[in-house]
Amino acid sequence: MQVVKGIVARAKGQPVTLEDITVPDPGPGEAVVTIQACGVCHTDLHYREGGINDEFPFLLGHEAAGIVEAVGEGVTNVAPGDYVVLNWRAVCGDCRACRRGEPQYCFNTFNATNKMTLSDGTELTPALGIGAFIEKTLVHALQCTKVDPAARPAAAGLLGCGVMAGLGAAINTGGVTRGKSVAVIGCGGVGCAAIAGSALAGAGTIIAVDLDDKKLEWAKGLGATHTVNSSGVDPVEAIRELTGGYGADVVIDAVGIPATWKQGFYARDLAGTLVLVGVPHPDAKIPEIPLIDVFGHGGALKSSWYGDCLPSRDFPMLIDLYLQGRLDLDAFVSEEIGIGDVEAAFEKMHHGEVLRSVVIL
């Protein structure tokens, strides 16, 4: 057991605080990881705002890379000294998805059983079962994915959530392959990762759509061939015009509001695919669309969970591509900050000033 510093959200909408946190020794199947870097993700802000659940206080942070310090009984996949990216899909191997050979949809992922606590003994709820705005965290060992230690932590950790979600939405969920046309609506961190993933897969036309010219410039730097500022034009018509009048083969909604989902629905070519990867508000509803349009358009309407990734397969592969210079993870790191700067980073995120602020520990 040890006491370290970490960032906690105590109540809905209240500023986060830097607290003393007790981290227990790892039990069976668990690991303690020394965190080196952790990205500030919009999901952390969702937790602080009560948009995930009301199980306060939360230990925030989940896009992290670090070094395994200690492991509990029965752990064989990692050992002390291993360099890992943390994930929130610790595949169980035994649920109905795993048994049918689809572990990327695992319905029973593992988290640590032991609880990290505040100094008064109050149990913390770690964000996405991780909690990584902290010097050391306790996770299930299967939440640790070994990767090449040559990858710098600030970049590698981003695979833990947002970058993997966007890349996977394009490649895994959307099935983007060579020559396909892609439109991405919303060019924050996840949307730009979808653009990078589309470029990596060899897509032909890659259209970035956003209201903010700064975000569209980020998208161009990551592989967008065309940009559309939808504040002044109809994005559906613009996407059709850029795809020979047909619409895109794959449209990715990285915003997650009814208006953008509807735009994505109509911006597809016949038999095209719409992927929802932006996290909707719990009150959001699918907009009213004539059922004949659903039938007549064909294709697929999908949602992407964590980029439908399999961490043990995808993280090492993407780190290798990063080290080969084929995937620019460094481009997603807008700034490196201290652990006490998370609240300010939330404000910058809210105003669209950064792709990712990354806490360095």
Rank of each mutant, 00 (worst) to 15 (best):
S198C: 10
G179D: 02
T122D: 09
V209S: 04
C192Q: 05
L211T: 14
L142R: 15
L142F: 13
A203G: 03
T109H: 02
L128I: 08
G131P: 02
R178P: 03
K214A: 11
A151M: 14
F110G: 09
I134T: 13
A156P: 03
I130K: 12
G131R: 10
A199G: 13
A193V: 05
D212A: 09
S119A: 13
D120Q: 02
G160E: 05
L128Y: 00
T117Q: 11
A208P: 13
I185S: 03
L118R: 09
G166Y: 07
N111L: 14
V182N: 06
D213H: 06
N108R: 11
D120E: 01
P103F: 01
C187T: 15
V209A: 04
G204R: 05
G121N: 00
D120K: 12
V184H: 00
G101Q: 09
K146M: 12
A141Y: 04
L216A: 06
P149W: 01
A141M: 03
A150S: 15
I171C: 00
A170N: 09
A208F: 07
V209T: 00
A196G: 00
A169P: 01
A208G: 14
E123R: 07
A141C: 10
A208M: 10
T177Y: 03
D148I: 04
G191W: 01
C187S: 05
C192M: 11
H140P: 10
A155R: 08
S181K: 06
P103W: 01
G157I: 08
V182R: 09
N172I: 13
G191N: 05
L128D: 00
K146D: 14
K214Y: 04
L142N: 11
R152C: 09
M164F: 09
N114A: 15
A199W: 03
L138T: 06
A170L: 00
I207H: 07
T113D: 06
N111R: 12
G129Y: 04
D210A: 06
P126H: 05
I207V: 12
G131L: 07
S119H: 03
T125F: 04
A112M: 13
N114L: 11
L211E: 09
L158H: 08
E102N: 13
G121E: 02
G202F: 05
L167F: 14
A141H: 05
C192N: 08
K180G: 02
G189R: 13
A151L: 15
D212G: 07
Q143T: 04
A196K: 06
T113E: 11
N172V: 04
N108P: 03
N114D: 15
F107A: 15
K115V: 02
N111P: 01
G168T: 07
K214M: 12
L159S: 06
R152W: 12
A183T: 08
A154M: 08
K214P: 04
C106L: 14
D213F: 09
C192P: 03
I185K: 01
L159D: 08
A132E: 00
L211C: 00
